[in-house]
């Protein structure tokens, strides 16, 4: 579902991704871990072209992202993204946050979009918050709305960029629970995270990145109990 070959990314002269190769299959849940500055978020953001790809080949859901003829907006309707800082639209209530893209991009009627939004809000446990504005929600609630907003486009793949890093510790669980449900339903997911518990429980594979390269990738059990590389061992020992 996602094929990445020799992906390089520069910011000016700084090379932040130094040749990433990676395959992700349908229904797979892949967790990307690594120290800050390792390029894991940049890697994730290349998968829906929030970052320009400097060189290499990235094919996501059949779209070749380095082909200038690729319809980026179409690709993005198929790839949902959840951000560390939620990025809800503060001038719109919860329902309108979720309904906007289905109406404007998918051309759903207001009633269709509302139905989708309400059922997704139920799914993330916020059925009673439809008319509330984001600033009245807790961080955990905001992130669940953001997940619902991304799901409203009925994406084939979901990208999560440190979805629980900005949350108070006691709110992390409710967001991870929603993500675990999603994983169980067979959503293809790429999750940049520091939540090793989640990686262990819901992940099919863990990728450890450092200094712009993939150092090691393996099933979670093996990654956490028997890492192959010194750098991985060192990182895991610190968290």
């Amino acid at each position: 579902m996602i094929q990445v070959r020799d992906l390089h990314k520069y910011y000016g002269d700084l090379e932040v991704l130094k040749g990433i190769d990676c395959q992700i299959s349908k229904r797979e849940v892949v967790c990307v871990i690594g120290p800050s500055g390792s390029g894991k978020s940049t890697f994730l953001r290349c998968l829906n072209l929030l970052e320009q790809i400097t060189s290499g080949q990235v094919v996501v859901n059949g779209h070749d992202l380095t082909d200038p003829k690729t319809d980026i907006n179409l690709l993005r309707t198929e790839v949902g993204m959840v951000f560390q800082r939620f990025n809800l639209f503060p001038h719109k209530n919860v329902l309108d946050n979720i309904m906007l893209a289905p109406m404007k991009v998918r051309k759903k009627t207001k009633n269709e979009a509302r139905e989708i939004a309400l059922s997704l809000l139920d799914k993330v446990g916020l059925g009673d918050k439809a008319d509330v504005f984001p600033h009245h929600l807790s961080g955990g609630q905001m992130q669940r709305v953001a997940i619902a907003r991304a799901l409203a486009m009925n994406p084939q793949i979901m990208l999560f960029d440190e979805p629980t890093s900005a949350l108070d510790p006691e709110l992390v669980g409710e967001v991870l629970a929603v993500m675990k449900d999603l994983a169980r339903e067979g959503m293809t997911m790429v999750v940049v995270t520091h939540e090793m518990g989640f990686a262990r429980e819901a992940g099919d594979r863990v990728i450890f990145m450092d200094q712009g390269v993939i150092v090691e990738e393996s099933p979670p059990e093996q990654m956490f109990t028997n890492p192959q590389h010194d750098r991985t061992r060192e990182f895991l020992s610190k968290i």
Partner: peptide, 12 residues
Amino acid sequence: GQEEAGRSLGLT
């Protein structure tokens, strides 16, 4: 992040 959220949903 507002622009990124919008663009990530497929809005032009």
